[in-house]
């Protein structure tokens, strides 16, 4: 028994060491955000409380147009989620609760669209959005994000609603409900868990998006957080402190949410890959 205990402790120490190595970059950028460049280079891992400074943060806040980019990113994320949930929950209901060859075929087509890589269509999306006057507008970003997250969210909603028992709507239909009423009064209230999953999953991706917003939006006038940080970092390549402070400010909202909602986050981000 004694041997087994030693072995357990040894393997745990091993795991702990790996975890520490994995978190070294996080530790490094968090403490470096509070230090000046010369300290970052000289003592990368040491915390010196006397040299602690908030200068990086105040500089970044002033010069990165952080308030503006925070608003843009937040607006894009929230509006996309609202559209996304409304459209995909309705479509998921139709695809999972109404029988017919048309709906089965549509479902397969929807799944096939999940595969298309976004960057392949980026060029024609830019050309298209110039034509329909969505280029360089936040709504352009919102519509494109919505469309590209729709197939997967619809897939999740259809899967969730498909697993609910048939009796649920049968009773309502017998009582004379229309399909609209069945959706709004019977199904909508039950969708909270899968809606949370969709919001978390798509919300994080949209918040973190760089590719679309850097291409579609004018980065000087309408920056989003990730674009702002990247162009800021491009200007001050050697000022590590600024970059790290910007990174912390930009990922703080999601990190804080993650600390409180860890379970939902993990469930949301792995949805689709894990059955059940």
């Amino acid at each position: 028994m004694e041997k087994k205990k030693m072995l357990t402790i040894l393997s745990e120490l091993c795991l702990l060491a790996c975890t520490v190595v994995c978190w070294l970059p996080v530790y490094y950028f968090v403490i470096s955000a509070f230090r000046l460049r010369k300290d970052i280079v000289k003592y990368p891992l040491k915390v010196i409380w006397e040299r602690f400074t908030l200068e990086n943060f105040s500089y970044v806040w002033k010069n990165m147009k952080l308030a503006q980019s925070l608003f843009n990113t937040g607006f894009i994320t929230i509006m996309t989620l609202v559209l996304l949930i409304a459209v995909s929950s309705m479509a998921g209901f139709a695809l999972s609760r109404i029988k017919g060859r048309f709906f089965r075929a549509y479902y397969s087509a929807n799944v096939a669209l999940m595969v298309v890589p976004f960057i392949s269509c980026l060029l024609s999306l830019v050309i298209l959005s110039t034509k329909i006057r969505l280029y360089n507008t936040l709504w352009g970003c919102i519509f494109i994000h919505t469309a590209w997250h729709l197939p997967f969210c619809t897939f999740l909603y259809a899967g969730f609603m498909g697993a609910l028992p048939m009796e649920l709507e049968e009773a309502a239909y017998i009582d004379g409900c229309s399909t609209f009423q069945v959706y709004f009064q019977i199904f909508l209230p039950l969708l909270a868990p899968i809606t949370a999953t969709c919001c978390i999953r798509s919300g994080i991706t949209i918040w973190n998006d760089y590719l679309l917003s850097s291409t579609l939006l004018n980065s000087a006038r309408k920056p989003t957080l990730m674009v702002g940080i990247n162009s800021f970092f491009g200007e001050y390549v050697s000022e590590y402190g600024y970059a790290f402070a910007g990174i912390i400010l930009a990922s703080l909202p999601i990190s804080v949410l993650f600390i409180f909602l860890q379970k939902y986050f993990i469930k949301g981000l792995t949805a689709g890959a894990v059955k059940g």
């Binding site: 990247n230 990922s251 600390i259 986050f265 993990i266």
Partner: peptide
């Protein structure tokens, strides 16, 4: 532990790249 291992997945690719 799960929290620690999962955390990097929340960061944007652009941010992980800069770090």
């Amino acid at each position: 532990l799960r929290f620690f291992w999962f955390f990097p997945c929340l960061l944007s690719g652009a941010i992980v790249g800069i770090i």
